[in-house]
Amino acid sequence: MEILKYIALIDQAINENESEIEGLDRAIGDGDHFINLKRGITAIHSMTDQLSTMTVNEQFKMIGMKVLSTVGGASGPLFATFFLEMGKHITDSKPSLKIIAEAFSKAVDGIKQRGKSDVGQKTMLDVLIPVAAKFEELASSNMSTQEIASDVNQFAIDCAHNTKDMLPTKGRSSGLGERALGHMDPGAKSCQVMISAVCQHIQGE
């Protein structure tokens, strides 16, 4: 797996969507979501030389620990959990798509347990949980990698848009009630952007 390449692609995509993510966070979040995302990505970039000499699971674990120690807000520990869990379940430098999908699902479950949250609460999990299930399903099909990437990409976009119609029951926006309707959750949007960056690159390969 070329983790550092995908981190760079995610960084570019987050920058391209800065205004939308920040706008959503100002409307219904804490206002620091984008800053925390950039802090985490910058911290990961600072370890590029060290990471380049490591095995895949070591890379995931070190990224997770770095995110945990440098990223604040509600999302820092959750993203850290994701990387740490991926490191537990991917040990091969060239894992099969099925193994990646299973690891992704376990990592998302780790976020769910850490955040004590679930689907339907207008959070990042409203993208991550359904996308994880869809990814596992497609990874066991006869579809090509590019076809799977295309379907996962569109599904993630749809899931993020679906949060517009949800009432928040978790996190900063939970106190806004119906005032949060019509806005995508910023965490759901940023997760969609990251997933789409990876999927769109795979589609083009």
Results as ranks from 00 to 15, higher is better:
R39V: 03
L37Y: 06
R39D: 00
S75V: 13
L78P: 04
G72D: 08
S46H: 06
V56R: 00
T48E: 15
G31H: 09
N36M: 10
F34K: 03
N57L: 03
A43P: 09
D49P: 04
F83H: 04
V56E: 03
F34M: 07
V56Q: 03
G73T: 06
Q59S: 07
K38T: 11
Q50N: 13
D49K: 13
T42G: 06
E58S: 10
T55W: 05
T81H: 00
F60A: 00
L78D: 05
G87S: 04
S46Q: 06
L37G: 01
M65F: 11
N36H: 12
S75L: 10
M62Y: 06
P77K: 13
G76D: 13
M47N: 06
G87W: 00
M54P: 05
G87Y: 00
M65C: 08
E85D: 10
R39H: 00
L37T: 06
G87R: 01
I41P: 03
V56W: 02
V67Q: 08
S46W: 04
G72P: 05
F82M: 06
L78V: 14
F79N: 13
D30L: 13
D30R: 13
M47P: 02
F34A: 02
Q59A: 00
F34R: 02
M86G: 00
K61S: 11
M62K: 09
